[in-house]
């Protein structure tokens, strides 16, 4: 199920502006990889190249290769929507569909895939909500609007929505930045559970979080404004936080930078 990701010389542009340059990295299946780095260094941009969401921004484009189990998802003839169906994404700010009920939010992806049978949908909705640790809180109000939940609940609803379609990779862009410590912990626990089934890539500004949940950590940085962001190093989380290979990484982690 879970897939391996490998980027080869990947650069991403917004029109004429190069946001990240020459990123080459390997992400193993069923691991959690954390991406850290100062604001504006291109972490979100890199994450969004992984499911081809980068290109929906007008004028944006990507060069280089991105292999998903040896298939280049930027190769000719590859359908972006197909890629996105296998790679789920959770955004920084919870974004449930405001016009849909809790149930419909979770079922949205399945419905897009043509699943119509109520039994199948019911099962998947329950399974996903349980997977996102939200089932107990919402099982009696599934027909209520998703926007009526608390921020933390909404974020878990978005996770449920993302995992309902059984993706092979789960991308999370600062999923806890808008949440309280308890919700944050709940989501961190959830990630550890989900790791058995998915390859997870998470962007975070929270060093402790990166240290707590991830197996590997990549450090991005930017030399100066206007310069593209680069991947400085990626290694086992243990190593990055105890004995990073680069001085810049150490400075950042110990708070002497950014």
């Amino acid at each position: 199920m879970a897939k391996r990701i490998e980027s080869v010389g990947l650069s991403a542009y917004y029109g004429g502006f190069r946001a990240i340059e020459d990123v080459s990295v390997v992400i193993e299946p069923k691991t959690i990889t954390a991406l850290i780095g100062p604001s504006g260094c291109g972490k979100s941009t890199f994450l969004r190249t992984l499911n081809r969401l980068h290109e929906v921004v007008p004028g944006a484009r990507v060069t280089g290769q991105l292999l998903l189990d040896d298939e280049d998802i930027y190769g000719p003839g590859v359908d972006a929507t197909g890629v996105r169906r296998t790679i789920g994404m959770v955004f920084q700010r919870p974004n449930p569909f405001p016009t849909m009920s809790i149930y419909d939010n979770v079922a949205a992806g399945l419905r897009l895939n043509g699943v119509k049978r109520k039994g199948v949908l019911d099962d998947a909705v329950e399974r996903s909500l349980q997977g996102a640790n939200l089932w107990k809180e919402v099982k009696d109000r599934l027909t209520k609007p998703g926007a009526g939940l608390s921020g933390g609940q909404q974020q878990r609803l978005c996770i449920a929505r993302a995992i309902a379609v059984e993706p092979q990779v789960l991308l999370m862009d600062e999923p806890c930045s808008a949440l309280d410590p308890i919700s944050t912990l709940a989501i961190e626990d959830l990630m550890t559970e989900l790791k058995d089934r998915f390859t997870i890539v998470i962007v975070t500004h929270n060093m402790q979080q990166a240290a707590r949940v991830s197996d590997r950590t990549g450090f991005f940085t930017i030399e100066a404004t206007g310069e593209p962001g680069r991947l400085v190093e990626i290694d086992d989380t243990q190593k990055i936080f105890s004995n990073p290979g680069e001085k810049r990484t150490e400075d950042y982690i110990t708070g002497r930078f950014g």
Partner: peptide, 22 residues
């Protein structure tokens, strides 16, 4: 909001499906 359109796209919606859902 762009965030909702991207939510739909990230689920693998085509442009028309995104318009319909978001």
């Amino acid at each position: 909001p762009v965030s909702q359109q991207e939510a739909a796209l990230a689920l693998g919606a085509t442009r028309w499906e995104m318009i319909r859902t978001a």
